[in-house]
Amino acid sequence: MNPLAGREAVAPNQPRPGRRISIAQRRERWGFLFVLPVTLFLLIVILGPLLFGFWISLHSWNPLASLTEAKWVGWRNYEFLLTLDKRFLPSLINSGYYAVARVIGNVVIGLALAMLMNYPKLKGLRFWRVALFLPMATSPVVLGHMWANMFHKDFGILNTITGFLGFPAVGWMTNPDTALIAVIIMGTYQFVGYYAIVFLAGLQGIPEEYAEAASIDGANGWQQFWYITLPQLTPVIAFVTVMSTISGLQVFDLVISSTDGGPADATNTVVLQMYKTVFVNGRAGQGAAMAFILFAILMALSVIQLRLLREQRS
């Protein structure tokens, strides 16, 4: 398992170093030195907790008690979550709905906004971009809190507006049928501008000649969009889709500061369920097992992402 040991063994035909080492080797050393701090840090701060988390996921442990009281339970935490637990899989599904709906919203609206901003004569690009970027830069806790106030069925400003337009008041976050939609609206709001900027950069990267050639051939706006713009943007769209899904599956701040999972568990997302399992229900092992199931899903998505990146480069 030691990569260094292996390397030394297969390099016998290099000049014997003696006290002096070759330039190539010295460079190799420098390269190694450059990444050493990060690597060590990574091992301690990321991989360590990961191993610890995995170890704990095979135990039953209340985080209030000392760790010596952790009891070995093998794979039973995983088994329980995937079979008996009535709240974990629904929470995973909620996160899935949220992630997918947000991706669709972000890609469709984001792309539309990017197309608008890409209109040649549109002035004030800087202004539009700053405005669009703001929600993504704002603390999700503040946003969630703000939106919870706006969505409130009584003193929420949204119902004031819809009431003014003649619609009945909606209990956005107090009705299980609409609460997840409200959370999806918040999430889409938070990121749509950001993705619009991503798409805009993608659009700006499409060579002008393509469009010129197409318009000479008599293609109309829609045809240009379908046959030229969209194929050119496919890698960016694919990338955004995967990134947004990965982050969407981990939604937490936004939910805990607005609906806290309710009503009737309609907005209970997987990370929220994880948080509550560890700290409220006092079952750190089970929470860690949840984290690893989620981790496996995210890893699979990342592999897809890496594939896409590779395709993009070639």
Partner: peptide
Amino acid sequence: LILVAALLLAGCAPAA
């Protein structure tokens, strides 16, 4: 990799 080992120890034996 003593550091890593120390870390593991760290992760596994907090309450001792």
